[in-house]
Simulated scan of single mutants.
Amino acid sequence: MISAIVIGLLVGLVARAIKPGADSMGWIMTIILGIVGSFVGGFLFGADKTGFWGFATSVIGTIIVLFVYEFIRSRSR
């Protein structure tokens, strides 16, 4: 459980750094974003990847989730 939180935080921070634009979210939302993005990346690219490729697919999945999150958030304003 602790490792999922730490990995989620790292993946969320890397995805937010890669994706352009201002993301105004806190630590908890970044962790949730990273964990959900890891599931999305694992689902889209295969969950059997570990190491660097697992991290890379998690970041890609997190960027996808971040785009969807911003799209929904902008539509609600």
Rank of each mutant, 00 (worst) to 15 (best):
S3P: 04
A17D: 12
L33P: 01
L13Q: 10
G54H: 01
M1P: 03
G34N: 08
G8T: 03
F67M: 07
S58Q: 06
F67L: 09
F71E: 13
I35P: 04
D48W: 14
G21Y: 00
M29F: 09
L10G: 15
I60C: 11
Y69I: 05
F39M: 12
A4D: 15
I32D: 06
K19F: 09
S3W: 10
I28V: 13
L44W: 01
F71K: 14
S58W: 04
R73I: 04
A47K: 08
W53F: 15
I31G: 05
G8H: 11
T50G: 11
A56P: 01
I35E: 03
R16N: 03
A17Q: 12
I32C: 10
I63C: 08
F39N: 09
F55L: 08
S58Y: 03
S24N: 14
R73M: 10
S3V: 13
T62C: 05
L66R: 13
I72Y: 06
I32K: 12
I2Y: 09
Y69T: 06
G34W: 03
S3R: 15
R77N: 12
T57N: 10
G37L: 06
L9P: 01
L33S: 10
A22Q: 15
I32M: 11
F71P: 00
K19H: 08
T57V: 09
V68N: 00
A22D: 14
P20V: 01
L9K: 12
I7L: 12
V68H: 02
T57D: 09
G42W: 02
M25P: 00
R73F: 10
G42H: 07
A17L: 12
I28E: 04
K49H: 15
F55E: 01
V68R: 06
V65C: 13
D48T: 11
V68S: 11
G54V: 08
S38H: 07
L66T: 01
F67V: 07
A15L: 10
V68W: 04
S74K: 15
F67C: 06
S76N: 08
V36Y: 04
A22L: 09
G37Q: 08
S38W: 02
I5G: 11
F71Q: 12
F55Y: 12
I64Y: 08
F67I: 10
G37D: 06
G51I: 11
L9C: 09
F67S: 07
